[in-house]
Simulated assay, not measured.
Amino acid sequence: MNDVAELPKTAVIVEDDPDIRHLLADVLESAGFATVSVGNGIDGVRAVIAHQPLITTLDVNMPGIDGFEAARRIRRQSDTYIIMLTGLEEEADVVLGLGAGADEYVVKPFRPRELRARIEALLRRPRAGESGGAASATGREDVGYVLPAAHTEADAPAMTRTDVAARPLLDEVPAPDDGWLTHRDLHLDPESRLVRMADLELDLTRTEFDLLAALMESKRRVRSKADLTLVLRGESYVTSYFVGDADKRAIEAHMTNLRRKLGDNPASPRYIETVRGVGYRMTSESSAS
């Protein structure tokens, strides 16, 4: 292994299967990373603390502690980008991975080209503490309400205004012609990345802000889950090969979190409505509250 101290980018690979470990090392090293490989979750947490990598890949099923617990421990001490790799693709597992602090969720078997594309997209996203994203203001993007395991978006409880994650405004509500996007009493500024609802300022994660901005910009045009996945990755072209079922379930989980912060009931939405089998769009301005 190369001397990681002399290289600008380091990746930690936490994987108990030696063949997959070698494949991950090949992909990451071809992307310019020095790699540190370990075979269990405990050693993985230690390696992340010792090397402070830019990227960490985590297998879910490992001896000792599983990938979910390893992610939680890592996230408490590092803002490394976490990519979880697993043979599991149930919605509950996707939600658990995101809730534990993962930034990406890749289902095995994966193709090297797909993983490389995901890594490159991930590196375009701001990390905690970096300017230019909501993460710097609100912390990790996946902290907050997480849909309970074995539930789907349709099973989410009815939401009320008391569920809103917000704080009182210090400034006046923006005028409609000053660059803010507006839908009913919801106002979003793409430049400052602020969201205001009536007399409250919402505390959204980076992902929640980006989803809401994409929908408000599109107004009544439906955005599919695949389309929203590419928006979050910063992709400007459609490559359905790189958008799988796990990606779409992750969008559903993030959308549930966003709706809860808006106090929006998916059964009778005020802001965001689901178009079954297609995706999401903003509600009609004239529809009932």
Rank of each mutant, 00 (worst) to 15 (best):
V4G: 01
D245P: 08
R221E: 07
P157H: 04
P266W: 15
F68V: 14
Y237W: 02
V45D: 06
G32Q: 05
P53H: 04
R259K: 15
F209R: 07
S37L: 04
A166M: 03
E252L: 08
T57C: 12
R233A: 05
T56N: 03
R46M: 12
P18A: 09
V94L: 13
E172C: 00
M255F: 05
I20L: 07
M197Q: 14
F242N: 00
L202S: 06
A149Q: 13
D17M: 07
L211F: 14
R76F: 06
I83S: 07
A70Y: 01
R118Q: 06
L188Y: 02
R196D: 11
I65E: 02
E114M: 10
A117V: 06
G67Q: 01
L170S: 15
L204H: 11
V12C: 03
V12A: 05
D17F: 00
L170P: 04
P18H: 01
T80C: 08
P148K: 07
T162C: 00
I65P: 03
D79M: 01
N61M: 15
V36R: 02
R118T: 08
R196S: 09
E252S: 15
R223N: 10
T57S: 12
A166E: 06
M62T: 12
Y271M: 00
D59S: 03
M159K: 14
R124H: 09
A100Q: 03
V146G: 08
I65V: 11
D17R: 07
P148W: 02
Y280E: 00
I49V: 14
P53Y: 02
S268K: 15
S78M: 07
M282R: 07
E69I: 01
E172K: 05
E201L: 12
R193K: 12
R270K: 13
D17V: 08
G279L: 04
L211P: 07
S236F: 08
I49Q: 13
T283S: 05
H51T: 02
P18K: 00
T256S: 15
G32N: 10
A92E: 09
L58N: 06
K248F: 06
N40H: 14
L230R: 13
E89D: 13
M84P: 06
P126T: 05
L147N: 04
H187W: 12
L232E: 02
T56L: 00
L202M: 14
L258A: 11
L188S: 05
V4N: 01
G144W: 09
T35H: 01
A166N: 05
V106K: 12
G133E: 10
F242R: 12
A31V: 03
E91M: 10
M216K: 09
Y271S: 03
S286A: 15
L228K: 05
A213Q: 15
V38R: 02
T162Q: 10
A50H: 11
R220H: 14
V95A: 01
K225F: 00
